[in-house]
Amino acid sequence: MGLKEIRWHGRGGQGVVTASELIAEAAILEGNYIQAFPEFGPERMGAPIKAFTRISDEPIKIHSQVYTPDIVMVLDPTLLGSVNVTEGLSDDGILIVNTPLGEGELRAQLGFNGKIYAFNATKIAMETIGRPVANTSCAGALVKASGLVKLENLLDVTEEKFKEKLSQKAIIANKEAIKAAYEAV
């Protein structure tokens, strides 16, 4: 596998860091090494933020920021146009975007030649969770698009992570969102 670097784009309060941690924790279940960190600095509700995940089958030594991600995940469609989400992403990379737009429209808008996965995570979240919280469905889409971790492991760590914070009903809804997003991309 080697070292894979994921960059997450979202806004403060959307659960971006939580999503990045879910993927990291699922990767650990499969015997991998991980690192997860938020963008360095103060986080502000509603402001654009980034988070990062590193996954590798060997111990991860590096302790500097991520400049050339292999995968970019955009949780919030309103960031397109104001944040350069493809920065450092080569044509070998993968871009996954929560958007009502189709893949073609998106490609035209971003001028990106690599793999693009466009899907409407907010719509999935509304249908499953009942609120526009797209972080778990984005994690589900990332699993499908990247193949970095297995779907069942993501579902397991989601259960584990949320069991003290959310009601059983909310946990089931989040897992539904993950599955629906997995199917959608």
Binding site: E21, I28, Y33, I34, Q35, P38, F40, G41, I60, H63
Partner: peptide, 12 residues
């Protein structure tokens, strides 16, 4: 420990 580079970086 270095700010963010370690304080906010999650590892196993």
């Amino acid at each position: 420990e270095d700010a963010f580079l370690l304080s906010h970086t999650s590892e196993i």
